[in-house]
Structures are given as C-alpha cells and as structure tokens.
Amino acid sequence: MLDISELSRLSGFSASKLRYYEDVGLIRSVGRRGLKRLYENEVKARISLIALARTAGFSLLEIKEMIGTDGTPNLERNVLVAKADALDATIKELTSLRDGLRHIVKCTAENHMDCPRFQRIMRVALTKKKTAAKGHRNRPSND
C-alpha cells in the first residue's frame, strides 16, 4: 500500500493532481492512514498509463474510457491509430514551422516582412489559428 505522498513522490504527480484524478474516476484509493489516502501498488501502472496518454495528447475523458471502470485498460487500436495520425500531422506542422524559423534566421532580405517565405509562414499560421478557434468553439470541454 502507498499513501498519497509516496505515490506523489514515485509518480511525479502532485498530491492535488492525484486527488483530482481520483475525483474524476481515473484512480481509486482503498482507504486512509490518518488523513492520507491509501492506494494499492497496482495504481502505479494506472498512473503510468495516464502519464503516457496525457503526453500523447489524450483528454482525461478519453483516458477514462481507455482505462475502463474496472481498471483494466481497453486500448482500442482505431483510437490509437487516430491519435498517432494526429501526432504525425502535428510533427509535420512543427517541423515546417521549425524549418521556417531557421530560414528566417538565415534570410538575406533586409526586412523579414519582405521575405516571401516569411509572408507565407505568417499566412499559414493565421489560417491555422482561425481553424483551431472554430474547432475549439464547436468542441465540448472534457478536461
């Protein structure tokens, strides 16, 4: 059995984050030692899965669906493939942005605003910002 401070130290998650994860049903304590919540050792695997999923960009609601009510992970392959595809798109976008910034550093134009590639990067950034804003307004919050 681990108390919340031990689990916090082992996982790197703050005690308040662990309490929040318990409140939303991602982890479950099995009792208390004084005022401290107690967890079974198996919760470490669950916390690791949560950390991996958050790093990959899954929302807490998506993670909750993956973990399931009994704590046994149900990792649907189609969901994982879709997230991997989204990560690929993000990597491509960030790589393009990085390359554009490196170009700007080396650009021979007297003013970056006169550089056609810089102009293109700014247009793309604005288009993506508009698209993201529209998507954000139409998507329910789940965190």
Rank of each mutant, 00 (worst) to 15 (best):
E42V: 08
F58D: 00
Y20S: 02
R32Y: 14
G25A: 07
K44L: 15
I4D: 08
I47D: 05
E62Y: 02
I63H: 01
A51G: 04
I63E: 01
V30N: 04
R28D: 03
E40G: 08
I4M: 10
A56T: 00
E62D: 12
R33L: 14
G12T: 09
L49M: 06
A51R: 12
L26C: 03
S11R: 10
A56P: 00
K44G: 04
L61H: 08
L52S: 02
S5W: 10
I27Q: 07
Y39D: 08
S59H: 02
A45G: 12
R28H: 10
R54W: 03
I27T: 07
Y21F: 12
S11C: 13
S16V: 12
A51K: 15
R32W: 12
S16I: 10
N41T: 11
S16F: 05
F13C: 14
A51P: 04
S8D: 08
L18K: 06
E40V: 05
K36S: 15
I27K: 04
R19N: 06
D3M: 09
L35Y: 15
E62G: 08
A56Y: 00
Y21W: 07
G57H: 01
V24W: 04
D3N: 15
S5E: 14
L61C: 09
E22D: 14
G25R: 04
R37L: 15
L18Q: 07
L61I: 03
S14Q: 03
L2P: 02
S8R: 13
G31L: 13
E6D: 14
S11P: 11
K36N: 15
L60P: 10
D3S: 14
L52G: 00
L52Q: 02
A45Q: 09
L2S: 02
L52C: 05
S14H: 05
L52F: 00
R32M: 11
V43Q: 03
E42D: 11
S8Y: 09
G34C: 10
S14D: 07
R32D: 09
R54S: 09
E42Y: 03
K36T: 15
L10H: 10
S5Y: 14
L10P: 08
L35K: 15
G34I: 07
G12R: 11
L2A: 04
G12D: 14
K44W: 04
Y39F: 15
G34T: 15
S5D: 14
R19P: 06
G25I: 06
S8L: 12
I47P: 01
R37M: 12
I50V: 12
D23S: 13
N41L: 10
R28M: 07
S29N: 12
L18P: 07
R32E: 13
L26G: 08
S59D: 04
L61S: 12
G57N: 01
Y21M: 03
I63A: 01
L26I: 05
V24P: 02
F58E: 02
F58P: 00
K44M: 15
A53D: 01
L10N: 09
E6Q: 15
G12F: 10
E22P: 08
Y20F: 12
L38M: 11
